[in-house]
């Protein structure tokens, strides 16, 4: 319960920066829909997810920057243990990814209304993208908790942007390759869809395990840290 209160504090601290999130997501998403519609290429459908997850990963590091060391003292004096504080921060990152998924769903629905095809394989790929996003945010937070907090804004910006860029370029190129090579036919194969969903299920378990492990590790480090 206390973790949720810490998540609320993070949302309050980053409210100003987050205002831009849905607008940028909607803008990029609609560009993808438009591109997909005009080129008849399915990569745009996957691009929606790549764009919004990219944005969520970029925005997820904001509380580390928004909290000056003196603000971090405020979090430290509140009656809670280190696990709640760290879990609250992770919950913030996961909530952003959830918001990103919701934005993608809305944009996808708009795309469908404009006649863009959306298959079961697309849904599985979106799920996989979301899971990779969870893993990247987890790694980003772990790094920031273990090394980044004291390194200042320069390090923070690198850690925020690098995983997001890797996700963006890899994801977008993969989506392009997948549809270019097979013209989208591969995604209609029942076997491929099954494999994608199995991968999605394994990814979900792996992401959950990674998040739990990272929270425990970061809480352990934070317990001994001075402010």
């Amino acid at each position: 319960m206390r973790a949720i209160h810490f998540t609320k504090i993070d949302f309050l601290s980053t409210k100003q920066q987050l205002k831009a999130f849905p607008f940028i997501a909607a803008l990029f998403g609609l560009i993808c829909v438009w591109q997909s519609k005009t080129s008849g290429n399915e990569s745009g459908v996957m691009g929606i997810m790549v764009y919004v997850i990219f944005l969520a990963i970029t925005f997820s590091g904001t509380p580390f920057g928004a909290c000056r060391s003196i603000d971090a003292r405020f979090l430290m004096i509140l009656p809670a243990d280190a696990t709640s504080r760290v879990a609250g921060r992770f919950l913030y990152g996961l909530s952003l990814l959830g918001m990103a998924a919701a934005c993608a769903a809305v944009i996808g629905a708009v795309g469908c209304a404009f006649g863009i095809g959306f298959s079961a394989a697309h849904a599985a790929i979106w799920l996989l993208g979301l899971e990779i996003g969870v893993m990247l945010v987890t790694l980003e937070y772990t790094f920031l908790y273990l090394f980044g907090e004291a390194q200042g804004p320069y390090m923070l910006n690198i850690v925020r942007v690098v995983p997001a860029m890797i996700f963006f370029f890899t994801g977008y190129n993969l989506a392009g390759e997948l549809t270019r090579e097979t013209g989208g036919a591969l995604l209609l194969s029942g076997e491929v869809v099954r494999i994608l969903y199995r991968a999605g299920a394994c990814g979900a378990v792996l992401a959950a395990a990674l998040v739990c492990g990272a929270i425990r590790l970061c809480a352990r480090v934070m317990r001994g840290r001075d402010y």
Partner: peptide
């Protein structure tokens, strides 16, 4: 018991510790 310990303390620092955009 970190929670009960901290509930008993009221701390006022030399610097203002609430986030200033609040």
């Amino acid at each position: 018991d970190e929670i009960r310990y901290k509930e008993r303390i009221g701390y006022i620092g030399d610097e203002f510790y609430y986030p200033t955009n609040f």
